[in-house]
Amino acid sequence: MNKTDEMNDQVWNMINKEKQKDKFLKTVSAVAWGVTLLVLITFGVYTWMDFSRTLRLYNNGMMRFENVISTTIPFLIILGSISLLMAILATIGRFLRLRTTSLLELQQRLANLEKLIVNKD
């Protein structure tokens, strides 16, 4: 094997390692989002139970309507925060992955061009 083939193999090994890292990150991300959604749904159920209880008290004239609405505010704050965090991280992640992939592809194409030029000579 000549030096160009070795460099080509090294580049392909790097690309394969990056793909393995991507698979691992996808798995970790899926599990983390699954747990987050489970916790969010559980919190939503508890919020709904509290909301329905305070709504019944409001309908019986024992509580003001502002108190009924205030039971949903913590859930809405958490839901909004998670949505904002997800949007920011997804945007940053997409940008970084696109840049990394593009650089590796460019490096591989340059290695292939170098190999073609060396073989022609």
Rank of each mutant, 00 (worst) to 15 (best):
I15A: 08
E66I: 01
Y46Q: 09
L89H: 09
L89A: 11
S83G: 15
D121N: 14
F43K: 03
T54D: 08
D121H: 13
V45L: 07
A111S: 14
L84R: 02
I69S: 10
T71Y: 06
M62P: 00
Y46V: 00
N60F: 07
Y58R: 01
I73F: 06
Y58N: 03
G61E: 05
G93R: 03
V35S: 05
R56F: 09
F75S: 04
P74Y: 06
F43D: 04
I78F: 08
S70G: 03
K120N: 13
E66A: 12
K21M: 11
L55P: 02
M86I: 00
K26L: 08
V31G: 05
R99V: 01
Q20C: 08
T101E: 15
K21P: 01
T47N: 08
I88E: 09
L110A: 13
A111L: 10
M1D: 12
L25T: 02
M14D: 15
Y58Q: 02
S52M: 06
F43V: 01
N60G: 04
V11W: 04
E18K: 10
D9R: 12
K17Q: 14
M7T: 07
S70A: 10
I69K: 11
E105F: 05
T27A: 15
K3L: 12
E18D: 14
I78L: 12
L110H: 14
N119K: 15
D9H: 10
M62S: 09
Y58V: 00
T42P: 00
K23F: 09
V118R: 12
K23N: 10
L40A: 12
L38D: 04
N60Y: 13
L106S: 13
F95T: 04
T4H: 15
R97C: 01
Q107S: 12
I41F: 09
T47D: 08
L113M: 11
Y58T: 00
L85W: 12
R99G: 03
E66D: 15
